[in-house]
Design a protein around this nucleic acid. Sequence first.
DNA 1: TCCCCACATTGACCTAAGTCAACGGGAGGA
DNA 2: TCCTCCCGTTGACTTAGGTCAATGTGGGGA
Lengths: 227, 227
Amino acid sequence: MEAIDRISRIPLFEGLPDDQLLDLASIAIEKAFKRGRTIFSEGEPGSGFFVVKTGRIKIFKLSPDGKEQILHLFGSGEPFGEVPVFEGRAFPAHAIALEDSTTIFFPRAAFIDLIKHNPSLALNMLAILSRRLRRFTVLVDDLSLKEVPGRLAAHFLYVSQQEKGADELRLDLPKGQLAALLGTIPETLSRILTKMVKQGLIESDGPRITILDRDGLSDLAEGVRRL
Amino acid sequence: MEAIDRISRIPLFEGLPDDQLLDLASIAIEKAFKRGRTIFSEGEPGSGFFVVKTGRIKIFKLSPDGKEQILHLFGSGEPFGEVPVFEGRAFPAHAIALEDSTTIFFPRAAFIDLIKHNPSLALNMLAILSRRLRRFTVLVDDLSLKEVPGRLAAHFLYVSQQEKGADELRLDLPKGQLAALLGTIPETLSRILTKMVKQGLIESDGPRITILDRDGLSDLAEGVRRL
DNA sequence: TCCCCACATTGACCTAAGTCAACGGGAGGA
DNA sequence: TCCTCCCGTTGACTTAGGTCAATGTGGGGA
């Protein structure tokens, strides 16, 4: 019963009747991954998808010479690895655990079966994939049409917003990973940070960032201003 | 009946029983757009989605200074504009007709209602969104981890593959639009094309491209070789 | 306590690709 | 037929940001 309780708190499964939750619980398999462990790799066939129970998961692409582009960071309650479930074919990217993590794994066939009998589960999943598509349009827009300072500014504003608009925020990623998230490299990120500090946009102390000039950051993010 | 016939040929509606097709036909609204006409703009609320009947539709983002990044090109039978249907909120990008086009519009509420009663419609839609997510991972990978010659080479190989592997292919986009698709500008595209010709990778005559060195193009696309 | 190592920063340099400007040529309208 | 306009190409130049290498620094383990 405690399993049901846990599953019912996953947004994807919001609003499902108890018997469906029970069905879900009966096909769910818990899998744990130590920090740094690979969960799946691009090109592998996917036999099901995961939901993060605890910890954090990074989804990313790798270039032949080892540069990394982060596509998603997923935390508690978020599903990942669904693409092969509905499309067939292989995982389109790599997944590793950023911290010691536990996940719930749902095997493909059983899950599709559940969806067939539960329209609101289908609609929840459609909503999640749609949200992810929207995020991708933003990522593409950033990579193709903005320069790095703009992306960083946008990221700060985004994190601040997550924190109810607080001016003080703390980066929950090492700088190198933040660079990979923004589609750049640590050196460039570092230089841009010092520039932002010099121009009085932010204060920076290790992973602690204080926003000093919100409008300035917005202008950067919009591409109106440059550093 | 002829309306049903048309709708049943749309992949999204594959395998639906006749009565469902009838339901679909009854909520479908045909809308035509002249070449160059805006179908929707980023930020507008979406009250439904479209399926291309004839013509071609371009989905794109715009930077404040007018640079364009194409996200999708959709042709006959392909749905577009679904994100707001399942997620609520506004369209994440712009859509215009590249040619005189006709589309079939499905209003949101009625369509969601249909999905609730038809699991295979839901699964078809999930498959389509999943495929689109996969394509986005490729686009992000290209933009972030490849350089322009690699993207162009990959594009040629892709188009060739669409044409059953033919060595002769014809670009169905003006060069400027091809540039926007690849995340660059016409000048850069032009220079890279001449380089490719000089190196004997391709022959080029206006919109006709002939692949001369497939492996060379692959190496470029993989990032193994440079121009 | 000391050492080590991963992370971060900084400088010098390089290069892919964007900007700006000029020009040619083909297609469509008058 | 001629004109015009748009598309594509080319050249000269600039620049964002990546590469390579050296140095600083703080936290965990022995």
